[in-house]
Amino acid sequence: MIELFLAELKRNWILQRRYPIEVVGIVIITVSIFYGLFLSARYVAGANFQLGDRLDSIVIGYVLWSLVLFIMGNIASILQYEAQTGTLEQLFLSQFGAVKVFLIRALASVTLQLIFVLTILLAILLLTGSRLNFPPALLLPLIAVLMGANGIAFTIGALALLFKQVNQLQVIFQFGLLFVLATPTETWTGFVQVLANILPIAPSAGILRALMARGESLNLTQLAIAFINGVVYFALGLGLFRLAERQAKKRGVLGGY
């Protein structure tokens, strides 16, 4: 498994290094969109534009959103691309089994993509003047974020296995997630608070905002909820992917596009 992880990491690294314009382009576009929105908000607010830790919270939501988009792209988009290029069936001919291969692949990609996301974050901090805290404790909710994001990615991947063209659905998911990640759901109360705990990645995003933007300490109850949320979505994604693999083999649509 470690060999496969290293091979995936190497494959990813070679592709990024060999075609750097694609990566640089994505980073620039992601930063530009946020900066454009930031400048528009400043223009609307006029001279009294002061967001304080609200800006920091928005930055965290936006950067998390871009991380989730990268992870979704790893599985769902690449799966559609590989079905077109013909390499997809070779992955299913591996003795490791498709779920393990895609899981290792996601892990290897995330390792590299965390670097891109960090670059995006630093660029946004520089451009907007936002200041964030980086306590070591942020790693824990970040793991929950990664689990939830991979769960969603595997769910869309499962649909891509069966229906091949899921671009429209992916876009709907992307904007839905922008809402979930950018909204401070941790401030919701009553019934909607329960909803906030159920929405994918929302509890871990809330903890990250508390830690990094508002400088609060780690709430263990919230962390437990975030982990349960992450594990449930991750398990759901993997389960659906496994089901979709079986269905695709039954329907004979594994490699077709």
Binding site: L4, L6, A7, R11, I14, Q90, L91, Q95
Partner: peptide
């Protein structure tokens, strides 16, 4: 069509070899 077109022959062989358990 069972190759990664952006990788070289030796990179393809290494990757698929590991995928096959080497």
């Amino acid at each position: 069509r069972n190759l990664y077109w952006r990788l070289t022959p030796e990179e393809n062989l290494e990757y698929f070899g590991v995928l096959k358990g080497l």
